[in-house]
């Protein structure tokens, strides 16, 4: 005899849990129940191939050289770029002359991204804590991608000076251009709300912030032996990025378990997972697609770990979806 019978309440107890309770108690079967419908729909209402709509706001931080706020669904990222001058004479081990221009930025570490998740953006990351494994590896992946994609041109970051010809100089003494200093860009990424897929949103925020970065005109003053910057905004120049690399992440939800035959397992590839799905998915794939043009074949990075569902066939599908996503981002960010 239930308690309802005892006090004679007319309402019969519900035979099923409300949605939220089901999701909390058994998240895996909850998502599975959604996906195994005739037309697979995720718990958040999206279809498996659906990405969330991105919105970008540029230049919201007034004191930085460039900034952007990117929102993808409930994930919101703020990115600010601060430029500082690094004197060539201050570099302890100047790179040898044979370093190619493209490698200069990586060699000198002129791009310094850092992602902060301990902002209270999600219960999984306590505010004020030291950066955990996730934050550190995200920072590293962003740094690695920044350097590998040659996004920022070294000429934008070097402050050149042409040595005047001396009067008594012999024929060998020619006007010579030297780099007196470099701009170092500190790229600070703050996650203010986290609902999955941090990497895609953080990377887009970095791109948007760099696109809006304006560096003041700087020159070497030979008399003062220092770098001077012009306060005039008319003289400042906007950085030109080469290409538009866009990251698209996929997660795989699978019912496979070691206790079950492999053929009996179902799996779904979910584009742009939110945090509820990330919790349940072990396998992840990130496709970074750049602008296709001569000498650039499109793919910059493919990262896949955690499972064996994505093979060659699924990879083709994911790369195609990443191409569509690239066009969507291009509409929002421009450039490329």
């Amino acid at each position: 005899m239930g308690p309802d019978m005892a006090n004679g309440a007319p309402t019969a107890p519900g035979l099923s849990f409300p949605r939220e309770t089901f999701a909390k108690l058994t998240p895996g079967p909850f998502l599975h129940a959604h996906l195994k419908q005739q037309e697979p729909t995720r718990a958040n209402g999206r279809s498996p191939e659906d990405f969330r709509k991105p919105t970008v706001n540029i230049g919201s931080l007034t004191h930085s050289n460039g900034s952007a706020v990117v929102r993808v669904g409930d994930t919101a990222i703020v990115c600010g770029v601060r430029a500082e001058i690094l004197l060539a004479s201050d570099i302890p081990h100047p790179p040898r002359d044979d370093v190619e221009d493209d490698d200069m930025i990586e060699e000198l570490g002129l791009l310094v991204p850092n992602i902060e998740l301990s902002t209270g953006c999600s219960p999984a990351h306590l505010p004020g804590n030291a950066p955990g494994t996730l934050a550190q590896s995200l920072s590293y992946r962003i740094l690695s991608l920044l350097n590998a994609s040659n996004l920022v041109s070294p000429s934008d970051l070097s402050i050149r000076y042409t040595k005047p010809q001396t009067e008594d100089g012999g024929p060998s003494e020619e006007a010579r251009e030297v780099t007196k200093a470099y701009w170092t860009l500190y790229i600070d990424i703050l996650c203010i709300a986290l609902d999955g897929n941090t990497f895609d949103a953080a990377w887009a925020a970095v791109i948007a912030a760099l696109q809006s970065t304006v560096l003041p005109k700087a020159w070497w003053d030979a008399d003062r032996e220092a770098i001077l910057c012009s306060p005039l905004t008319a003289e400042a120049h906007r950085m030109q990025l080469s290409g538009l690399p866009i990251a698209s992440t996929f997660a795989v939800f699978s019912t496979a378990s070691p206790l079950k035959r492999l053929e009996e397992a179902d799996s779904w590839v979910l584009a742009d997972p939110d945090s509820f799905e990330e919790e349940l998915c072990k396998e992840n794939l990130t496709v970074v697609m750049g602008t296709k043009h001569a000498g650039n074949d499109g793919l910059l990075r493919l990262e896949k770990t955690g499972g064996s569902v994505i093979g060659k066939v699924a990879m083709q599908r994911c790369v195609r979806m990443a191409e569509d996503r690239w066009r969507e981002w291009k509409g929002v960010l421009g450039g490329g």
Binding site: G295, D297, G298, L302, E303, T305
Partner: peptide, 24 residues
């Protein structure tokens, strides 16, 4: 794995899907 299931892929550089498939 021994059955030919792809467990890990990390690719970087400049490539297209056809190259990757050949690599795989």
């Amino acid at each position: 794995t021994q059955h030919g299931d792809l467990l890990l892929n990390e690719s970087a550089g400049n490539f297209n899907l056809e190259v990757w498939e050949e690599v795989a």
